[in-house]
Design a protein around this nucleic acid. Structure first.
Length: 390
DNA sequence: TCTGGGGTCCTAGGACCC
DNA sequence: TCTGGGGTCCTAGGACCC
């Protein structure tokens, strides 16, 4: 997990109905652009074509989950607050969000709760309360929509807006409206596209406004490591380093064809465009249509008995079926995930003979797929995912 | 101190068909 | 007897993000 000036936002537990997989959609936008808008909603390109919005704003709530918890318990203000798991730092689980006071002790998103407790014993540990965050998030998004711009929701605590006019003035207005509606602080990144806006936000934190454009791109980012970019993680950064590409500037100057060979036909060339700050995906408020729905659990104690494993898979499958039939979507494929005790993860799946909404057939398929797992070692995690017919 | 849960998309290899 | 390509579909794994 990058620390320091990395512009990634604090990670948070997510909500299923929100737009995801955004990065790869930036990659494949060229191919999918024709379909955008088919689902309804408005799209705005930030380029100045015919009076369409010229600026993209990225709004990111500051330490969202921790801030929401402090909001309902003001006595926690100024104290290190760590939200994650069920709030018991002796159990298996990771940090969803740490307040800035806790981050000063080296506690960050994704850190095991036990480690967080060692680093910051005086922290207040709280359980994740999804319903609350969803409520507050809705208030935030309503406040953003009140400005009349196209709003693309990116999770509980993030959104893009396509705007015209003075972007700094708009950013100040956004910060005021969000504060008035919820009492929360946010940071606004301004860019000529979503990529620039998203990265700008990291430099404005906390509670600030930052503008990043094609003109300032290399001045701001050129000397930073490639994983400062949105979409490049530790693994890809390491691979790039092996190719002699360390910084954003290096990557921007790399040969797309060479990277296509080395990394992959789609991702290779896309990385170069990323490093150049180029992105022509639209800001869109088209309703999000999920591709899959799943449930998974990490057990507090590993499961030794395969009968228990079968029972748990059946339970997860029924939960998924319940979730899914609520939206009336047809299931085309069922995937089971098993994480064995030393954190070795395997998945197996099956495409159904015909799409179904029948909970029994989903459970049956999941148990069927479970038989494909040969190992009988202790199990740490089980998951079931249903993929929708498209 | 072991490493959550919710997702998306890409890749590579094999099967199969023409 | 040996040897093609191209296309599509499926599967498991991997990388990344919130």
């Amino acid at each position: 997990m990058p620390t320091g000036p990395s512009p990634t936002s604090p990670s948070s537990v997510d909500r299923t109905s929100w737009r995801r997989g955004h990065l790869r959609s930036l990659q494949s936008h060229g191919r999918r652009a024709a379909n955008d808008g088919a689902a309804g909603g408005r799209s705005c390109w930030w380029r100045n074509n015919g009076g369409v919005a010229r600026w993209v704003l990225h709004v990111d709530l500051d330490q969202f989950i921790a801030a929401v918890e402090v909001l309902r318990r003001p006595e926690l203000s100024g104290r290190p607050v760590v939200v994650g798991g069920d709030g018991d730092p002796t159990k298996r689980g990771v940090v969803s969000t740490a307040s800035y006071e806790a981050r000063a002790h080296g506690v960050h998103s994704g850190l095991p709760l036990r480690t967080a407790a060692r680093r910051c014993p005086e922290a207040v540990f709280l359980p994740v309360d999804r319903d609350l965050y969803e409520d507050v998030s809705s208030q935030v998004m309503a406040a953003l929509r009140s400005l009349g711009a196209v709003v693309e929701v990116m999770g509980w605590d993030e959104a893009f807006l396509a705007v015209d006019g003075d972007p700094e003035e708009m950013a100040r207005e956004i910060r005021e409206r969000v504060r008035a509606a919820t009492g929360l602080e946010c940071t606004v990144g301004i860019g000529q596209n979503k990529l620039q806006a998203k990265l700008a936000t990291g430099f404005g934190k906390p509670a600030g406004i930052f503008r990043l454009t094609g003109e300032t791109w290399f001045e701001v980012l050129g000397d930073r490591p490639a994983d400062a970019l949105w979409g490049i993680g530790a693994k890809t950064a390491k691979r790039l380093k092996g190719l002699g590409i360390g910084t954003v500037r290096d990557l921007a100057a790399a040969d797309p064809a060479a990277l296509a060979d080395a990394i992959g036909p789609t991702i290779g060339p896309w990385l170069v465009r990323l490093a150049q700050g180029r992105d022509d995906s639209p800001v869109s408020d088209a309703p999000y249509v999920p591709r899959s729905r799943g449930r998974e659990t990490t057990f507090q104690r590993d499961l030794d008995d395969w009968d228990d494993v079968r029972r748990e898979v059946a339970r997860l499958a029924r939960r998924v079926a319940r979730d899914v039939t609520a939206d009336g979507r047809q299931i085309a494929r069922v995937v089971v995930k098993v994480r064995y005790a030393p954190f070795i993860t395997q998945t197996h799946g099956r495409t159904l003979d015909a799409p179904t909404v029948d909970p029994e057939r989903i459970e049956e398929a999941a148990l069927d797929v479970l038989d494909a797992f040969a190992g009988r070692r202790p199990v740490r995690l089980l998951g079931v995912r249903a993929e929708f017919a498209r």
